[in-house]
Design a protein around this nucleic acid. Structure first.
Lengths: 213, 213
DNA sequence: CATTGCATTATGTGCAGACATATTAACCTT
DNA sequence: AAGGTTAATATGTCTGCACATAATGCAATG
């Protein structure tokens, strides 16, 4: 009867109805557990879920409070491009347009990803070779895919934006210069906080990144 | 010594090293618990985290398997625009450019959000009044903000894309027609799956949506 | 008066056991 | 052989208990 989802819903209802105003502290887990007639672990699970959702803020000893500014959080999947293309029933391929070694043992790569031989996305990447195992044959597998399966879980920053196609992007994607492109930039670091790679990925017009709340 | 984070790391290491190849099934929670010398609940926590990350797929009775196609998941915050603007030290304001009632008890709203009196984002919204409480005075509080604090948790779809500014967006945002804009479209539904509102939000050039992995 | 140190407190996490539930596989029926 | 029923199984979750950990404030100390 009292699952943690029910408790999450109840807590959220109390926040919405003003019983626990925005910015205020809510009772301790133990009190809530007594209120709801369940174990503290159950309350804990519910409150942790709400914290992950951006509704609550929790701090040891500080207790739990309702965020003053509610934040909606959405989880987006950043798939391997090959899988993304093949999921729509199209055939994936990629071409390395240009590559060069740069300062400090870096490799610069310009890649075009294609779906049914039509341009799908244009990628510019800098790889820091010192923090990577030897590279494979890049004509067989895309760097993107190789990295995902090779490098242990890494942290990183992602940014989404819109930008006008520059000359290189325009040429690769068969669009006029200045065309709005959906751009994803990524910076990936390994466990030791060393930068592994930086990527700028510009998608051909019509691209949408979808998710649910 | 054996926290659930350690176990998550170990499982991830085994996947990366090929002990558990992509697409293969991994042992049951009970077996893993014996292997790692911990309780099943601890293994469960670790595996659930990995499933949320997009590394594993879990099904009752079906067991746990490594996803054939690794997916990176990132959580993005969709903040209230006022908070987003004020977080950068600027002053928020908004203007309702146009509004009209449409078919089936809907309200159409065109809003401009400003930061230090400069255009920040252009919003076009359709509200389904039948599934909402009475609206407040919209000059005092933006719809966006009112909805977040008023409507109980709702599901919805979000899509990010890049688009060329149309005439209305160009005029509102002080940019030439055709300028690349970062666009967020949202469709929000209540618990009964009824559509509450649809939004198209076009951000002024320079906008970035950031997140970490 | 500043600083260090300790006790307090709320959340974070672990464990063992139990039952719930979804899903598959095996079985039986027609 | 097709189809429906049943049993087996792995995950999902709850409970009650325990200890760990971080953060806060108070107190003792120099």
């Amino acid at each position: 009867m009292t699952g943690w989802e029910d408790i999450r819903a109840e807590v959220q209802a109390r926040i919405r109805s003003g019983v626990w105003p925005l910015g205020s502290a809510i009772p301790h887990e133990e009190d809530l557990a007594r209120d709801f007639g369940c174990a503290r672990a159950t309350v804990n699970r519910a409150l942790r879920a709400l914290a992950a959702q951006g509704v609550l803020e929790r701090r040891r000893k500080g207790g739990t409070r309702v965020l003053a500014v509610p934040v909606r959080k959405a989880t987006v999947s950043i798939p391997v491009i090959r899988a993304e293309v093949e999921a729509t029933g199209r055939r994936y391929s990629h071409q390395i347009i240009w590559q060069a070694t740069g300062q400090e043992n870096t490799l610069h790569l310009e890649t075009l990803h294609l779906a049914d031989d039509k341009p799908y996305a244009h990628e510019v990447r800098v790889l820091h070779l010192a923090v990577l195992p030897p590279l494979p044959d890049l004509t067989a597998i895309s760097i993107n895919e190789w990295l995902v399966t090779t490098v242990s879980y890494a942290t990183g920053e992602i940014a989404f934006s819109a930008a006008a196609a520059d000359a290189g992007q325009a040429r690769a994607l068969w669009v006029p210069t200045g065309t709005p492109l959906f751009v994803i930039t990524r910076e990936t670091r390994n466990a030791a906080a060393q930068v592994i790679t930086k990527v700028l990925l510009a998608h051909a017009p019509g691209y949408h990144l979808r998710t649910t709340m």
